[in-house]
Design a protein around this nucleic acid. Structure first.
Length: 271
DNA sequence: ATAATCACCTGCTCGC
DNA sequence: TGCGAGCAGGTGATTA
């Protein structure tokens, strides 16, 4: 379910409940996620105090002196703070119980998510090593996109969703940002001008920031760490609206597949 | 190196 | 009401 705004919403929701808490117990009910949960996870975490929750791309990180916990929500994952005694449901795979009596509960029906442990000794974890810049930093801008895209024939939407180029822009926000920037999603990335990439970078930042402010986009059942849904859905201009009227010019929005992902755009507003 | 496809897994919606 | 097909917020691995 989550793109960057949903992950950041989760981070902000859970951090106040985790900060300063000691891990009392770790329960792994279903270790088979995208990769197996390390068998020593409980041994690594139990008794240690959580200092903060960081985010890099769509990964949530709990740093400790002796290593870090890496979590990813995949397509359908969520993390919530619940009373440790709250009965579990079908897809509640992991509980990290805290000294407060609450637990951080990892739920993920499709199990595309991940819970990993990385000891401190090694360098950057391979999953984090080759990631592009964070979209909400100055490092990510039109000039950067322009430079990285030269010579590339792939569709600009696919390019924008490539985590090696920039992290955190998933299918929803790629569709939205391209609409706001007036760029057709299937245009070759290498043939777009600097000026248009400046607009695109700007719109990526705007749409992500706005969504974070509203607690993310709840499509099916996304809830932040506090259990509240996100309210950005009602502001989506193209995602999920194929066949409906463009909010700008009322032209019927086209829906096509690009790199196996549903892609919606206005053939009149986006060129 | 880049591009396209596959794979992982469950649940839901749609059409018959 | 039941059933198969297709699709869903991600992304590493594999293949040309």
């Amino acid at each position: 379910m989550p793109e960057l705004p949903e992950v950041e919403t989760t981070r902000r929701g859970i951090e106040p409940h985790l900060r300063g808490q000691r891990v009392a117990r770790v329960i792994v009910r279903h270790p088979q996620l995208r990769w197996p949960i390390p068998t020593d996870l409980a041994a690594q975490l139990t008794g240690h105090v959580i200092s903060e929750v960081q985010r890099r791309a769509k990964y949530l990180l709990l740093p400790f002196a002796h290593g870090q916990l890496i979590m990813h929500l995949g397509m359908s994952g969520s993390l919530r703070i619940v009373p440790a005694a709250q009965p579990v449901k079908k897809h509640d795979h992991v509980d990290i119980e805290l000294s407060s009596g609450q637990a951080l509960r990892f739920t993920d029906p499709r199990r595309f998510g991940a819970v990993l442990w990385q000891p401190t000794d090694t360098e950057l974890h391979p999953l984090l090593a080759d990631l592009g810049p964070e979209p909400l930093t100055d490092e990510f801008n039109g000039a950067y996109l322009f430079e990285r895209s030269r010579g590339r024939s792939a569709a600009v939407k696919t390019f924008l969703m490539d985590g090696h180029i920039v992290v955190g822009v998933g299918n929803i926000y790629a569709n939205e940002a391209l609409f706001s920037a007036g760029i057709r999603p299937d245009r070759a990335a290498g043939k777009i001008s600097l000026a248009r990439y400046e607009a695109l970078a700007q719109e990526v930042k705007v749409v992500l920031a706005r969504s974070i402010k509203q607690g993310g986009t709840t499509l099916r059942d996304f809830v932040g760490g506090d259990g509240n849904p996100g309210y950005f859905r009602q502001q989506l201009q193209v995602y999920g609206r194929g066949g409906e009227a463009c909010v700008i010019c009322a032209t019927v929005l086209d829906e096509v597949r690009l790199g196996q992902r549903s892609t919606v755009y206005c053939r009149r507003c986006q060129r």
